Amino acid sequence: MSESQGQLGLTPSQTVGPFLSIGLTWADGADVVPAGTPGEIRIGGVLYDGAGEPITDGLIETWQADPDGRFAHPDDPRGAVEPSVPGFRGFGRSATDAEGRWEVRTVKPGALPGEAPHIDVSVFARGLLDRVVTRIYFPDEDAANATDPLLSEVPADRVPTLVAHQAAPGHLRFDIHLQGEAETVFLAL
């Protein structure tokens, strides 16, 4: 080793990111269905950090079944089918804005066998080296929610962190808290 190699300093620390606005978002990414789709709803909220501050550089990804509870994907155990809703893609991606808000345009998914209707959610944000995953359940599905296997495992006082609430006609609110007193329940994958 030469003297100059032995004198090298430490590599400067680098930020992990996120750099979510570079290549991970696209113009209609938040549109799981096209505008004007019959039965469309908007689901959105605010992404909060552990101190209760909005996260302005986060990304919310959603994945869901169509209204019939089916996926146009080979991993659907009942077999892949074309969606029953024209233009439905089952996947959405919304960056948070300057106030930490996110929103997707979609339709309510149907129930999967043995599960209540829900939307799977991945959250990407600063300070996370990997995504965290949660679910959105629907407030008008009390009977199905009461028998859902995942919700049955969640302590009763934590279940509300997984259920959206009606904000306005056609609009559901689902805030996501990464830590703190109101922390959203996240799934261990």
Rank of each mutant, 00 (worst) to 15 (best):
M1R: 10
G6V: 11
Q7V: 12
L8G: 02
G9V: 13
G9A: 14
L10P: 12
T11R: 15
Q14H: 15
Q14R: 15
Q14W: 14
V16F: 15
P18N: 07
P18T: 10
P18A: 10
L20S: 12
S21D: 15
S21T: 15
S21G: 13
S21L: 15
I22N: 15
G23C: 06
G23K: 12
G23Q: 11
L24I: 11
V33D: 06
P34A: 09
A35F: 10
G36C: 06
T37S: 08
G39K: 02
E40M: 03
I41M: 08
R42Q: 15
R42I: 14
R42T: 15
I43W: 04
I43F: 00
G44P: 08
G44Q: 07
G44V: 05
V46Y: 05
V46E: 03
L47P: 01
Y48N: 02
Y48S: 03
A51N: 15
G52Q: 00
E53H: 13
I55H: 00
D57A: 07
L59S: 00
L59H: 00
E61A: 12
T62E: 08
Q64H: 04
P67K: 01
P67F: 03
D68G: 13
R70C: 14
A72W: 06
H73K: 11
P77F: 10
R78C: 15
G79C: 09
P83Y: 01
V85E: 07
G87H: 07
R89L: 09
G90Q: 09
G92Y: 01
G92C: 02
G92W: 01
R93H: 07
S94C: 06
D97E: 05
D97H: 03
A98N: 14
E99A: 13
E99F: 03
R101Q: 12
R101Y: 03
E103Y: 11
R105A: 02
T106C: 07
V107D: 02
V107M: 03
K108H: 01
P109R: 09
P113W: 10
G114N: 10
G114T: 12
E115M: 12
E115D: 14
A116P: 00
H118C: 00
I119H: 02
D120M: 13
D120S: 13
D120Q: 14
V121I: 12
S122R: 15
F124Y: 15
G127I: 06
G127P: 10
V133W: 08
V133L: 12
V133D: 13
T134Y: 10
R135L: 13
I136G: 09
Y137V: 04
F138Q: 05
D140K: 05
D142E: 09
A146S: 09
T147G: 05
D148L: 08
D148C: 01
P149I: 05
L150D: 10
L150M: 15
L151M: 00
E153I: 09
V154W: 01
P155E: 09
V159G: 00
V159S: 03
P160R: 00
P160N: 04
V163C: 02
A164Q: 04
A167E: 11
A168W: 04
P169S: 04
G170W: 08
H171I: 10
L172P: 02
L172K: 00
R173H: 09
I176A: 05
E181C: 03
E181N: 03
T184G: 00
V185E: 02
F186M: 05
F186G: 10
L189E: 14
